[in-house]
Design a protein around this nucleic acid. Structure first.
Lengths: 187, 187
DNA sequence: CCAATTTCGTTAGGTTCCATACGATAAAGT
DNA sequence: ACTTTATCGTATGGAACCTAACGAAATTGG
Protein backbone atom coordinates (compact mmCIF):
# COMPACT_ATOMS: atom_id res chain seq x y z
CA UNK A 1 0.00 0.00 0.00
CA UNK A 2 1.02 3.51 -0.65
CA UNK A 3 2.35 5.18 2.43
CA UNK A 4 1.11 8.46 3.83
CA UNK A 5 2.50 10.58 6.62
CA UNK A 6 0.87 9.69 9.92
CA UNK A 7 -2.09 11.86 10.52
CA UNK A 8 -2.12 12.81 6.85
CA UNK A 9 -5.52 12.98 5.34
CA UNK A 10 -4.83 10.86 2.27
CA UNK A 11 -8.18 12.21 1.21
CA UNK A 12 -10.15 10.93 -1.69
CA UNK A 13 -9.29 8.89 -4.77
CA UNK A 14 -11.29 6.16 -3.13
CA UNK A 15 -12.79 4.15 -5.93
CA UNK A 16 -9.71 4.09 -8.14
CA UNK A 17 -9.90 1.22 -10.60
CA UNK A 18 -7.04 -1.13 -9.87
CA UNK A 19 -6.95 -4.86 -10.31
CA UNK A 20 -6.14 -6.40 -7.02
CA UNK A 21 -6.79 -9.53 -5.07
CA UNK A 22 -10.32 -10.65 -4.95
CA UNK A 23 -11.40 -8.84 -8.03
CA UNK A 24 -11.42 -11.77 -10.36
CA UNK A 25 -12.67 -9.86 -13.32
CA UNK A 26 -15.42 -11.60 -15.15
CA UNK A 27 -14.85 -15.01 -13.56
CA UNK A 28 -16.21 -16.07 -10.20
CA UNK A 29 -14.72 -18.65 -7.88
CA UNK A 30 -16.93 -21.38 -9.22
CA UNK A 31 -16.01 -21.04 -12.86
CA UNK A 32 -12.37 -20.65 -11.93
CA UNK A 33 -12.34 -23.89 -10.03
CA UNK A 34 -14.23 -25.56 -12.86
CA UNK A 35 -11.62 -24.45 -15.35
CA UNK A 36 -8.86 -25.80 -13.15
CA UNK A 37 -10.60 -29.14 -12.76
CA UNK A 38 -10.97 -29.36 -16.52
CA UNK A 39 -7.41 -28.43 -17.28
CA UNK A 40 -6.01 -30.93 -14.77
CA UNK A 41 -8.28 -33.77 -15.80
CA UNK A 42 -5.51 -36.05 -16.93
CA UNK A 43 -3.23 -35.64 -13.93
CA UNK A 44 -3.45 -37.44 -10.63
CA UNK A 45 -4.24 -34.51 -8.40
CA UNK A 46 -5.45 -34.26 -4.82
CA UNK A 47 -8.19 -31.75 -5.52
CA UNK A 48 -9.52 -31.51 -1.99
CA UNK A 49 -6.09 -30.52 -0.74
CA UNK A 50 -5.75 -28.05 -3.56
CA UNK A 51 -9.08 -26.34 -2.93
CA UNK A 52 -8.38 -26.08 0.78
CA UNK A 53 -4.90 -24.64 0.37
CA UNK A 54 -5.56 -22.35 -2.56
CA UNK A 55 -8.61 -20.87 -0.89
CA UNK A 56 -6.60 -20.08 2.21
CA UNK A 57 -4.30 -17.98 0.12
CA UNK A 58 -7.12 -16.41 -1.84
CA UNK A 59 -9.08 -15.54 1.29
CA UNK A 60 -5.99 -14.12 2.93
CA UNK A 61 -5.33 -11.80 0.01
CA UNK A 62 -8.95 -10.66 -0.03
CA UNK A 63 -8.90 -9.99 3.68
CA UNK A 64 -5.67 -8.05 3.69
CA UNK A 65 -6.96 -6.03 0.81
CA UNK A 66 -10.23 -5.35 2.56
CA UNK A 67 -8.49 -4.11 5.68
CA UNK A 68 -6.10 -1.92 3.74
CA UNK A 69 -9.09 -0.32 2.07
CA UNK A 70 -11.17 0.18 5.21
CA UNK A 71 -9.65 0.59 8.67
CA UNK A 72 -6.05 1.11 7.58
CA UNK A 73 -6.79 3.71 4.93
CA UNK A 74 -6.25 7.19 6.37
CA UNK A 75 -4.25 5.93 9.33
CA UNK A 76 -0.86 6.08 7.63
CA UNK A 77 -0.21 2.46 8.56
CA UNK A 78 0.52 -0.40 6.24
CA UNK A 79 -0.74 -3.88 7.02
CA UNK A 80 2.67 -4.95 8.24
CA UNK A 81 3.14 -1.79 10.23
CA UNK A 82 -0.17 -2.42 11.95
CA UNK A 83 0.71 -6.05 12.68
CA UNK A 84 4.02 -5.01 14.22
CA UNK A 85 2.31 -2.45 16.42
CA UNK A 86 -0.33 -5.00 17.30
CA UNK A 87 2.33 -7.46 18.46
CA UNK A 88 4.08 -4.86 20.60
CA UNK A 89 0.73 -3.77 21.96
CA UNK A 90 -0.29 -7.28 22.97
CA UNK A 91 3.02 -8.46 24.35
CA UNK A 92 4.29 -5.17 25.71
CA UNK A 93 7.92 -4.14 25.29
CA UNK A 94 9.62 -6.99 23.43
CA UNK A 95 12.85 -8.00 21.78
CA UNK A 96 12.92 -7.42 18.05
CA UNK A 97 13.38 -11.06 17.13
CA UNK A 98 10.24 -11.94 19.09
CA UNK A 99 8.29 -9.22 17.34
CA UNK A 100 9.53 -10.32 13.92
CA UNK A 101 8.54 -13.92 14.60
CA UNK A 102 5.09 -13.03 15.89
CA UNK A 103 4.47 -10.64 13.02
CA UNK A 104 5.56 -13.24 10.49
CA UNK A 105 8.29 -11.14 8.88
CA UNK A 106 12.06 -11.44 8.72
CA UNK A 107 14.22 -9.50 11.12
CA UNK A 108 15.63 -7.54 8.22
CA UNK A 109 12.17 -6.43 7.26
CA UNK A 110 11.42 -5.50 10.84
CA UNK A 111 14.37 -3.12 10.89
CA UNK A 112 12.85 -1.15 8.03
CA UNK A 113 9.31 -1.24 9.36
CA UNK A 114 10.49 -0.16 12.80
CA UNK A 115 12.39 2.71 11.25
CA UNK A 116 9.17 3.89 9.64
CA UNK A 117 7.10 3.48 12.80
CA UNK A 118 9.81 5.24 14.78
CA UNK A 119 9.67 8.20 12.40
CA UNK A 120 5.95 8.39 13.13
CA UNK A 121 6.72 8.36 16.87
CA UNK A 122 4.51 5.33 17.34
CA UNK A 123 7.31 3.00 18.44
CA UNK A 124 10.57 3.48 20.26
CA UNK A 125 13.77 1.44 20.48
CA UNK A 126 15.55 0.78 23.78
CA UNK A 127 18.71 -1.12 24.60
CA UNK A 128 18.32 -4.52 26.17
CA UNK A 129 19.11 -4.36 29.90
CA UNK A 130 21.79 -7.07 29.88
CA UNK A 131 22.62 -8.04 26.29
CA UNK A 132 23.99 -5.09 24.39
CA UNK A 133 23.41 -6.74 21.02
CA UNK A 134 19.67 -6.79 21.48
CA UNK A 135 17.10 -4.08 21.05
CA UNK A 136 13.72 -3.74 22.73
CA UNK A 137 10.63 -2.33 21.04
CA UNK A 138 7.81 -0.52 22.80
CA UNK A 139 4.87 1.68 21.87
CA UNK A 140 5.00 5.36 22.61
CA UNK A 141 1.95 6.96 24.27
CA UNK A 142 0.65 8.10 20.85
CA UNK A 143 1.18 4.58 19.52
CA UNK A 144 -0.69 3.17 22.49
CA UNK A 145 -3.49 5.65 21.92
CA UNK A 146 -3.69 4.75 18.24
CA UNK A 147 -4.04 1.04 18.96
CA UNK A 148 -6.73 1.63 21.55
CA UNK A 149 -8.85 3.53 19.07
CA UNK A 150 -7.92 1.50 15.98
CA UNK A 151 -8.35 -2.01 17.23
CA UNK A 152 -12.10 -1.93 17.91
CA UNK A 153 -12.60 -0.77 14.32
CA UNK A 154 -10.35 -3.55 13.20
CA UNK A 155 -12.30 -6.13 15.12
CA UNK A 156 -15.56 -4.83 13.71
CA UNK A 157 -14.20 -5.52 10.24
CA UNK A 158 -13.11 -8.97 11.31
CA UNK A 159 -16.67 -9.65 12.34
CA UNK A 160 -17.82 -8.35 8.97
CA UNK A 161 -15.48 -10.71 7.16
CA UNK A 162 -17.00 -13.82 8.79
CA UNK A 163 -20.53 -12.48 8.82
CA UNK A 164 -21.84 -15.26 6.56
CA UNK A 165 -20.51 -18.03 8.82
CA UNK A 166 -22.27 -19.22 11.95
CA UNK A 167 -20.50 -19.68 15.27
CA UNK A 168 -19.78 -23.33 14.72
CA UNK A 169 -18.31 -22.69 11.29
CA UNK A 170 -16.09 -19.96 12.67
CA UNK A 171 -14.75 -22.19 15.38
CA UNK A 172 -14.18 -25.05 12.95
CA UNK A 173 -12.42 -22.73 10.55
CA UNK A 174 -10.07 -21.40 13.21
CA UNK A 175 -9.42 -24.91 14.49
CA UNK A 176 -8.58 -26.29 11.06
CA UNK A 177 -6.21 -23.42 10.39
CA UNK A 178 -4.51 -23.88 13.74
CA UNK A 179 -3.96 -27.52 12.88
CA UNK A 180 -2.27 -26.52 9.64
CA UNK A 181 -0.07 -23.89 11.23
CA UNK A 182 0.97 -26.26 13.98
CA UNK A 183 1.79 -28.93 11.43
CA UNK A 184 3.92 -26.60 9.33
CA UNK A 185 5.69 -25.09 12.30
CA UNK A 186 6.89 -28.47 13.48
CA UNK A 187 7.97 -29.18 9.90
CA UNK B 1 12.15 -14.30 -1.96
CA UNK B 2 15.55 -13.79 -3.37
CA UNK B 3 15.64 -14.43 -7.04
CA UNK B 4 17.97 -16.76 -8.88
CA UNK B 5 18.55 -17.12 -12.57
CA UNK B 6 16.31 -19.80 -14.04
CA UNK B 7 18.01 -23.13 -13.93
CA UNK B 8 20.54 -21.72 -11.49
CA UNK B 9 21.50 -24.13 -8.79
CA UNK B 10 21.11 -21.79 -5.83
CA UNK B 11 22.82 -24.68 -4.07
CA UNK B 12 23.03 -25.03 -0.35
CA UNK B 13 22.61 -22.61 2.53
CA UNK B 14 19.44 -24.49 3.21
CA UNK B 15 18.91 -24.21 6.94
CA UNK B 16 19.79 -20.55 7.19
CA UNK B 17 18.34 -19.10 10.36
CA UNK B 18 15.92 -16.39 9.45
CA UNK B 19 12.83 -15.45 11.36
CA UNK B 20 9.88 -15.72 9.09
CA UNK B 21 6.22 -16.49 9.20
CA UNK B 22 5.26 -19.47 11.22
CA UNK B 23 8.38 -19.59 13.28
CA UNK B 24 6.95 -18.07 16.38
CA UNK B 25 10.11 -18.36 18.37
CA UNK B 26 9.52 -19.65 21.84
CA UNK B 27 5.77 -19.11 21.83
CA UNK B 28 3.26 -21.51 20.31
CA UNK B 29 -0.15 -20.63 18.94
CA UNK B 30 -1.86 -21.51 22.18
CA UNK B 31 0.13 -19.25 24.43
CA UNK B 32 -0.06 -16.48 21.86
CA UNK B 33 -3.82 -16.59 21.78
CA UNK B 34 -3.90 -16.78 25.56
CA UNK B 35 -1.78 -13.66 25.81
CA UNK B 36 -4.10 -11.85 23.43
CA UNK B 37 -7.18 -12.89 25.36
CA UNK B 38 -5.58 -11.63 28.56
CA UNK B 39 -4.48 -8.33 27.09
CA UNK B 40 -7.90 -7.65 25.60
CA UNK B 41 -9.85 -8.68 28.65
CA UNK B 42 -11.39 -5.29 29.25
CA UNK B 43 -12.53 -4.60 25.71
CA UNK B 44 -15.67 -5.78 24.00
CA UNK B 45 -14.15 -7.99 21.34
CA UNK B 46 -15.59 -10.59 18.97
CA UNK B 47 -13.00 -13.23 19.71
CA UNK B 48 -14.41 -15.91 17.44
CA UNK B 49 -14.22 -13.59 14.47
CA UNK B 50 -10.72 -12.59 15.47
CA UNK B 51 -9.43 -16.16 15.76
CA UNK B 52 -10.96 -17.12 12.45
CA UNK B 53 -9.60 -14.15 10.55
CA UNK B 54 -6.18 -13.95 12.16
CA UNK B 55 -5.58 -17.65 11.64
CA UNK B 56 -6.38 -17.32 7.96
CA UNK B 57 -3.61 -14.81 7.62
CA UNK B 58 -1.24 -16.78 9.79
CA UNK B 59 -1.87 -20.01 7.90
CA UNK B 60 -1.45 -18.25 4.59
CA UNK B 61 1.93 -16.89 5.57
CA UNK B 62 3.06 -20.28 6.83
CA UNK B 63 1.94 -21.95 3.65
CA UNK B 64 3.56 -19.48 1.32
CA UNK B 65 6.73 -19.76 3.31
CA UNK B 66 6.60 -23.53 3.22
CA UNK B 67 6.24 -23.57 -0.55
CA UNK B 68 9.01 -21.07 -1.06
CA UNK B 69 11.28 -23.29 0.98
CA UNK B 70 10.34 -26.56 -0.69
CA UNK B 71 9.09 -26.78 -4.26
CA UNK B 72 9.96 -23.24 -5.32
CA UNK B 73 13.49 -23.28 -3.99
CA UNK B 74 15.93 -24.09 -6.81
CA UNK B 75 13.36 -23.32 -9.51
CA UNK B 76 14.21 -19.64 -9.81
CA UNK B 77 10.56 -18.75 -9.34
CA UNK B 78 9.05 -16.54 -6.71
CA UNK B 79 5.63 -17.31 -5.30
CA UNK B 80 4.05 -14.63 -7.43
CA UNK B 81 5.95 -15.72 -10.50
CA UNK B 82 4.67 -19.22 -10.00
CA UNK B 83 1.11 -18.04 -9.50
CA UNK B 84 1.24 -16.03 -12.71
CA UNK B 85 2.56 -19.00 -14.64
CA UNK B 86 -0.05 -21.19 -13.02
CA UNK B 87 -2.83 -18.91 -14.19
CA UNK B 88 -1.53 -18.84 -17.74
CA UNK B 89 -1.10 -22.59 -17.64
CA UNK B 90 -4.65 -23.22 -16.46
CA UNK B 91 -6.43 -20.72 -18.68
CA UNK B 92 -4.14 -20.87 -21.67
CA UNK B 93 -3.12 -17.76 -23.53
CA UNK B 94 -4.86 -14.87 -21.75
CA UNK B 95 -5.13 -11.12 -21.64
CA UNK B 96 -2.93 -9.49 -19.04
CA UNK B 97 -5.75 -7.94 -17.06
CA UNK B 98 -7.33 -11.38 -16.67
CA UNK B 99 -4.04 -12.83 -15.45
CA UNK B 100 -3.53 -9.99 -12.99
CA UNK B 101 -7.01 -10.43 -11.57
CA UNK B 102 -6.69 -14.20 -11.24
CA UNK B 103 -3.24 -13.91 -9.68
CA UNK B 104 -4.46 -11.29 -7.23
CA UNK B 105 -1.93 -8.61 -8.18
CA UNK B 106 -2.23 -5.20 -9.79
CA UNK B 107 -1.67 -4.79 -13.49
CA UNK B 108 1.38 -2.68 -12.77
CA UNK B 109 2.91 -5.48 -10.76
CA UNK B 110 2.11 -7.94 -13.50
CA UNK B 111 4.08 -5.89 -15.98
CA UNK B 112 7.19 -6.30 -13.84
CA UNK B 113 6.64 -9.97 -13.05
CA UNK B 114 6.01 -10.70 -16.71
CA UNK B 115 9.22 -8.93 -17.62
CA UNK B 116 11.08 -11.23 -15.25
CA UNK B 117 9.36 -14.38 -16.53
CA UNK B 118 9.98 -13.25 -20.08
CA UNK B 119 13.70 -12.90 -19.36
CA UNK B 120 13.62 -16.52 -18.22
CA UNK B 121 11.91 -17.51 -21.48
CA UNK B 122 9.02 -19.04 -19.56
CA UNK B 123 6.39 -16.62 -20.83
CA UNK B 124 5.90 -14.69 -24.02
CA UNK B 125 3.88 -11.60 -24.92
CA UNK B 126 1.75 -11.42 -28.06
CA UNK B 127 -0.45 -8.71 -29.51
CA UNK B 128 -4.18 -9.11 -29.15
CA UNK B 129 -5.74 -10.17 -32.48
CA UNK B 130 -8.25 -7.32 -32.70
CA UNK B 131 -7.55 -4.77 -29.94
CA UNK B 132 -4.10 -3.27 -30.33
CA UNK B 133 -4.06 -1.87 -26.80
CA UNK B 134 -4.17 -5.32 -25.27
CA UNK B 135 -1.45 -7.88 -24.75
CA UNK B 136 -1.77 -11.64 -24.54
CA UNK B 137 0.35 -13.84 -22.29
CA UNK B 138 1.26 -17.44 -23.03
CA UNK B 139 3.73 -20.02 -21.76
CA UNK B 140 6.68 -20.94 -23.91
CA UNK B 141 7.45 -24.65 -24.38
CA UNK B 142 10.04 -24.51 -21.57
CA UNK B 143 7.48 -22.79 -19.38
CA UNK B 144 4.94 -25.44 -20.21
CA UNK B 145 7.48 -28.13 -19.43
CA UNK B 146 8.32 -26.52 -16.10
CA UNK B 147 4.70 -26.41 -15.01
CA UNK B 148 4.12 -30.01 -16.00
CA UNK B 149 6.98 -31.17 -13.80
CA UNK B 150 6.54 -28.61 -11.04
CA UNK B 151 2.83 -28.83 -10.40
CA UNK B 152 2.68 -32.44 -9.20
CA UNK B 153 5.37 -31.56 -6.64
CA UNK B 154 3.34 -28.55 -5.71
CA UNK B 155 0.20 -30.59 -5.22
CA UNK B 156 2.11 -33.11 -3.12
CA UNK B 157 3.04 -30.29 -0.77
CA UNK B 158 -0.56 -29.10 -0.70
CA UNK B 159 -1.55 -32.56 0.44
CA UNK B 160 1.19 -32.40 3.07
CA UNK B 161 -0.14 -29.09 4.35
CA UNK B 162 -3.60 -30.52 5.09
CA UNK B 163 -2.34 -33.92 6.17
CA UNK B 164 -3.74 -33.59 9.67
CA UNK B 165 -7.26 -32.82 8.45
CA UNK B 166 -9.73 -35.46 7.32
CA UNK B 167 -11.72 -35.22 4.10
CA UNK B 168 -14.73 -33.62 5.71
CA UNK B 169 -12.62 -31.00 7.44
CA UNK B 170 -10.86 -30.16 4.18
CA UNK B 171 -14.15 -29.67 2.37
CA UNK B 172 -15.57 -27.59 5.21
CA UNK B 173 -12.43 -25.47 5.28
CA UNK B 174 -12.55 -24.77 1.56
CA UNK B 175 -16.28 -24.04 1.73
CA UNK B 176 -15.92 -21.59 4.61
CA UNK B 177 -13.13 -19.75 2.81
CA UNK B 178 -15.14 -19.58 -0.39
CA UNK B 179 -17.96 -18.01 1.57
CA UNK B 180 -15.62 -15.34 2.89
CA UNK B 181 -14.09 -14.57 -0.48
CA UNK B 182 -17.49 -14.34 -2.10
CA UNK B 183 -18.68 -12.03 0.65
CA UNK B 184 -15.70 -9.70 0.33
CA UNK B 185 -15.79 -9.69 -3.47
CA UNK B 186 -19.35 -8.44 -3.51
CA UNK B 187 -18.34 -5.82 -0.98
C1' DC C 1 -17.09 12.40 -38.83
C1' DC C 2 -14.56 13.91 -35.06
C1' DA C 3 -14.10 15.52 -30.39
C1' DA C 4 -14.72 13.63 -25.66
C1' DT C 5 -14.56 9.76 -22.92
C1' DT C 6 -13.25 5.28 -21.63
C1' DT C 7 -10.16 1.49 -21.42
C1' DC C 8 -5.90 -0.62 -22.36
C1' DG C 9 -0.75 -1.76 -20.69
C1' DT C 10 3.31 0.54 -19.28
C1' DT C 11 6.13 3.70 -16.68
C1' DA C 12 7.59 6.27 -12.55
C1' DG C 13 8.23 6.63 -7.76
C1' DG C 14 8.24 4.81 -3.38
C1' DT C 15 7.49 1.19 0.31
C1' DT C 16 7.70 -3.50 1.71
C1' DC C 17 9.97 -7.58 1.95
C1' DC C 18 13.47 -11.18 1.58
C1' DA C 19 18.23 -13.29 1.59
C1' DT C 20 22.82 -12.33 2.36
C1' DA C 21 26.61 -10.33 4.36
C1' DC C 22 28.32 -7.95 7.67
C1' DG C 23 30.23 -5.78 12.47
C1' DA C 24 29.46 -6.18 17.27
C1' DT C 25 28.63 -8.71 21.33
C1' DA C 26 28.16 -12.89 24.03
C1' DA C 27 29.12 -17.67 25.00
C1' DA C 28 31.98 -21.84 24.80
C1' DG C 29 36.12 -24.35 24.33
C1' DT C 30 41.06 -24.80 25.28
C1' DA D 1 43.21 -15.35 29.03
C1' DC D 2 41.92 -16.08 24.43
C1' DT D 3 40.71 -17.87 20.43
C1' DT D 4 36.68 -19.93 18.21
C1' DT D 5 31.77 -20.15 17.49
C1' DA D 6 27.14 -18.64 17.86
C1' DT D 7 23.81 -14.99 17.89
C1' DC D 8 22.41 -10.31 17.91
C1' DG D 9 20.43 -6.25 14.84
C1' DT D 10 21.53 -3.68 10.83
C1' DA D 11 22.96 -2.52 5.95
C1' DT D 12 22.58 -3.72 1.22
C1' DG D 13 20.72 -5.14 -3.22
C1' DG D 14 17.07 -6.72 -5.77
C1' DA D 15 12.30 -8.50 -6.58
C1' DA D 16 7.55 -7.65 -5.59
C1' DC D 17 4.00 -4.56 -5.10
C1' DC D 18 1.07 -0.59 -4.92
C1' DT D 19 -0.84 4.01 -6.67
C1' DA D 20 -0.90 7.56 -9.92
C1' DA D 21 0.08 9.40 -14.20
C1' DC D 22 0.69 8.59 -18.91
C1' DG D 23 0.25 7.69 -24.04
C1' DA D 24 -2.14 4.89 -27.30
C1' DA D 25 -6.12 2.83 -29.01
C1' DA D 26 -11.06 1.92 -28.95
C1' DT D 27 -15.64 3.63 -28.09
C1' DT D 28 -19.30 6.95 -27.73
C1' DG D 29 -22.28 10.87 -29.02
C1' DG D 30 -23.33 14.88 -31.09
Amino acid sequence: MKRVAPGGSCSASAAGGSNVAGMTGHHDLRSTEDAITQRLGGLNIDFEAMWAVSNIYRASASIRNHFERTVLRDTGLTWTGFVVMWVVWIWGESETRHVAAEAGISKGTLTGVTKTLESYRYVRRSPHPTDRRRVMLALTPPGERLMRTLFPDFNREEAFVVKDLDGEQRRALAAALRTIVRHLETS
